[in-house]
Amino acid sequence: MEQVVRLFFNPELILQALPQLLREGLRNTLVISVGATVIGVVLGLGLALMGVSRTRLLRLPALVYIDIFRGLPAILTIALVGLGLPTAGIRPFGRSRLAYGVLALGLIATAYIAEIFRAGIQSVDKGQMEAARSVGMSYMLAMRLVVVPQGIRRVLPPLTSEFIAITKDSSLLFILGTTIGEREIYRVGQSAAQQTGNFSPIVGAGLVYLLITIPLTRLVNLLDRRLREGKDVVAEPLPSEAEMTG
């Protein structure tokens, strides 16, 4: 037991690792996750629209893409994008490992987010589309003005969950190689663990992840509740006793 505390939960070593974890790790992790999420939302929405299209020609590529990128382990996709593309001579980002990593995570996120959007769009009552078409809107216009706006509100909770998942997956970019300065949270913890011969800095890295993910998880729950129950159902606070007597 003592050994476990010493090797994994050594407070001194955790504190010692924290500044670097926050300064370098947290920043890079956020840059990676936000970047990947932006790619995922943009491409994912496009893919979702293809997926619900009535044209097979559009549906099929979307289906194949989603199947492949959801079905592969993230670490494999990262290696394929980060090492495979440059090997094939495709070098949109020169040698920036971080950029390839963000692209890889973004492509993976695209598949998941496409599914989230598809579910959101399909959850909008059919009558909405029918009504919009009946007043003379085109399919695309009805999608843009009526269906998608309603669908998107409903997908905010799962989207936030996806962001959390991406944040955690960002630790996998290590396989592409890292230099001092471009390490994300987990890698910073790992380096410190190597230097100290103790696992505690990695546990410290875990704490920093929780710093991001717990508030977000709360946010998901809040959004979820709001969507189900409507806005601000909280009653006005009762006047306090002081106010009443005062």
């Binding site: 040698r95 190689g177 890292t178 230099t179």
Partner: peptide, 19 residues
Amino acid sequence: IVEFPTSEAAFTALRSGQV
């Protein structure tokens, strides 16, 4: 100096021209 988790990853990066 670019750190890789394994020797294999380092040599893959070398062969792909990343380092």
